[in-house]
Design a protein around this nucleic acid. Structure first.
Lengths: 212, 212
DNA sequence: CAGCCTGGCGCACGTATGTTCTGTAAAAGA
DNA sequence: TCTTTTACAGAACATACGTGCGCCAGGCTG
């Protein structure tokens, strides 16, 4: 089977994407025919069939506009809605979501590409206030994405609360013979060592988003 | 006009949203009829008409599945497709897009929430290799979002090429009596001063995305 | 009560739309 | 050369689907 797409097939794909941008339903066979200057509906059907076999789309038999665009070039659709639970700042407790606080209704949210949350459930976002996270390569105004967790395995970036001064900090988490090592993401900075009962994990960091 | 929606109308709205999650085309009148246990298509049409008048949706006459859901609960839609033009690493030139290289066809892309690009045109992304951008609070593997530019005004974060060693670096850009000051985002680190003809701006940084 | 809304029902009509059948012509094998 | 495959054309067919019409049951109002 040939790997290349004919120019007509490429044109049809592009037209279908543009069409779905404008309306939010797929075009009919005759829409494609008119939009791509094709003289017969059977030609559209013919090429649609090919595009389907190559995995560019799926068709539903006997369903009007029954075309489902597949593959990488499908805009929209794959976004994950993540709630912004509040702020994170030095010296303040982390607003961890209880299962009760989980109405996404009327809470501020962001739509993010799924590669940032990678299937993790209950990911939430916090807005960073201040520069106290700078050793985690996180600046003022950044959005950190967290996954609720109370334990962590070696090397994961976590939001850790130090009982001593009740501060929350973002560090890489290691356990080394009974002690916890909190390693800043910036290799130029020194790690912190604390007793395991003097630190508690509040969540795992799954991503950071910065808008300048 | 009554403000409340009848339970049947709410059910129809919910059904339509669920339907569009599953497929990516709107349901027909008869789909809604079956999905909401309504005994006649005309009832569906009747309530659809009401929902349209209240601004919950738009309908296209004589078009199968010609229903366009409006309002806040429309996920997807607002995403910006940004091409990933390549890598950015210390000592390597920046792959700046020419207008010829602008076919989004067959190029790797990411869908991002629009607050990251904020209306800027031709934004593109580069994947950071290595830790050379660490003074800009950018880690290995981060995705930096750039807007093509050859000039910058005071304080903007730019991708600047130093002619001396032909390195590209991300810094805040300032002009101070004929000299250019490149200020790292990390306030603990010292700025670089160079002659204006010894540096060229390659683009403005508009955002950073990190997936851990 | 007659009128007149609202909300619902069933049906049938017409068109919008997917599908298929019959050809044609150029390219590709053999 | 003959055959096969690819790509397209045109038309007819079958059905998916929106829409309009008539009707009915309650709840008002005069």
């Amino acid at each position: 089977m040939k790997a290349e797409l004919s120019p007509r097939q490429k044109g049809m794909l592009e037209f279908m994407r543009e069409f779905m941008e404008e309306h939010q339903f797929p075009p009919t066979v005759r829409d494609i025919q008119a939009g791509c200057n094709i003289s017969s509906t059977s030609v559209v059907d013919y090429n649609l069939r090919i595009l389907q076999n190559r995995g560019y789309l799926r068709r539903f038999a006997d369903v009007s506009r029954g075309i489902e665009l597949l593959g990488s070039s499908r805009p929209g659709r794959d976004v994950v809605r993540v709630p912004i639970m509040g702020n994170i700042a030095a010296g303040e407790p982390l607003p961890i979501p209880g299962s009760d606080t989980w109405h996404s209704g009327e809470m501020e949210t962001v739509d993010l590409p799924p590669f940032l949350t990678k299937g993790k459930e209950h990911v939430f976002a916090l807005k960073v206030k201040g520069t106290s996270m700078i050793d985690a390569l996180i600046a003022d105004g950044d959005l950190v994405l967290l996954e609720p967790a109370s334990r962590a395995s070696g090397g994961e970036m976590v939001a850790a609360r130090l009982h001593e001064n009740n501060e929350v900090t973002l560090k890489h988490f290691f356990i080394e013979n009974g002690m916890v090592r909190l390693q800043p993401a910036n290799p130029l900075m020194d790690p912190i060592f604390v007793r395991a009962d003097q630190v508690s994990v509040q969540g795992k960091v799954v991503g950071v988003v910065r808008s300048v």
